[in-house]
Design a protein around this nucleic acid. Structure first.
Lengths: 217, 217
DNA sequence: AAATAAATCCCCGAATTAGGGGATTTTTTG
DNA sequence: CAAAAAATCCCCTAATTCGGGGATTTATTT
């Protein structure tokens, strides 16, 4: 049984050549070709595709919005994104939106067919340069965390961090005192030091800074 | 100039066949073949590879540990991981460790050569099924966030959100009143409503919840 | 048109926090 | 070992926040 493919691309010429390519290849069948995403759901319901080939740059509803809609209403349909430009935000957003693959428009026709099959089989073909960006998203978080904890080291003492984390949980001085088995006055003392080290002057500021700067987890 | 490739694989037979494949292909050159990662740094220094083909499952230092060492001492060398099993943890860890590509052992020889070139050129070739897992890592966090903002909709009014965001910035009631051009008492009134909607009873709790639940940005 | 929600304002008293002073005892470290 | 840092405790006053009451004027929705 042939893989049914619907294509969304505002470039009429490209749309046609993809149509010819896919429909003319054994094992593939064009379910529908569309130059925009208006009335997207009915277009999909009528064409009943197994795989959608989606251009990112489109007037009106763009490819990323479209993927969100598709995955929301037809989660079983796998979407292969196609783009001329590979900028970080687009790649990231498309993936988060639920795209199953991401290839560049300069991908050779034979490879496009392979990618459609791979997507259909549950894989996620990506152009190597796109894949590198994707790996970057996963690898980045590491150094950032390192930066935060090394760059802005407020060098709070262990007790101070403990008190601060109690504060973030919403405890009052009294509760913190109880929790840490120290007196109210000691809590106050720690708080004063925390304020000085964090350069803040209120509980709320301290909490906000503690969370945002990931001083406490 | 040929791409210099070093291979690490504990399977002697596979190592030999990869050696023959790569060294026998134009544009490629074997820099070294090794059945384990002991004394890794000197092995790399002596062989001077452009790309490393690294098996994950190895006795002693495994492939993931090895990547970490490689990327730490020779960040310019791109590592292509190769594995028989594609379990989530390995994929994730290898990527975080700094691997540039990740292919399965059943990848056909011609494709392996392509992948080496892609890695060498700064791309990140991945077997489609691996890529799908990688996308999964990025897509997972989303639904959580979506849950938080849709599931737990505290339906704060616009003014309440405004007040809350001032609070998160560390403002006092007075400052908020000034900032929003309302009286101190109105701020209090909003705060009471916020506390009720958020199910909290102090500024600190409100701030912590606002940040953690991403109610304000 | 009536009901609901949002936004605004007011008062009181009790509780909590902030800022300014201290001081003592452990640890840690040069 | 001496100096520095961390952790503990205390008092006073001023400022701020919290939990109860209210009330009025706009939107918004039904």
């Amino acid at each position: 049984m042939a893989i049914r493919v619907s294509i969304f691309d505002d470039n009429k010429r490209l749309l046609d050549s993809l149509n010819v390519l896919i429909d003319g290849s054994p094992g593939f069948q064009i379910a529908g070709t569309f130059i925009n995403c208006s009335d997207l759901e009915s277009k999909i319901e009528k064409s009943q595709p197994d795989v959608i080939l989606m251009d990112i740059e489109m007037p009106g509803i763009n490819g990323i919005e479209a993927v969100k809609i598709v995955k929301h209403h037809f989660p079983h349909i796998n979407v292969l994104m196609q783009t001329a430009f590979e900028n970080d935000e687009n790649v990231f957003e498309a993936i988060c939106a639920g795209a199953s693959g991401y290839i560049l428009k300069n991908t050779p026709p034979s490879r496009i067919l392979e990618c459609i099959v791979e997507v259909y089989q549950g894989g996620s073909p990506m152009s190597p340069s796109v894949a590198r960006k994707v790996l970057g998203f996963l690898q980045k978080p590491k150094p950032e965390e390192a930066k935060i904890s090394s760059y802005e080291n407020y060098n709070l003492s262990i007790r101070e961090k403990e008190v601060l984390s109690c504060l973030v949980k919403g405890m009052s001085y009294k509760m913190i005192a109880d929790n840490c088995s120290i007196t109210y006055e000691t809590v106050r003392s720690h708080m004063k030091n925390i304020y000085e080290k964090l350069h803040v002057a209120s509980m709320t500021e301290a909490v906000a800074k503690a969370i945002n700067q990931k001083i406490v987890m």
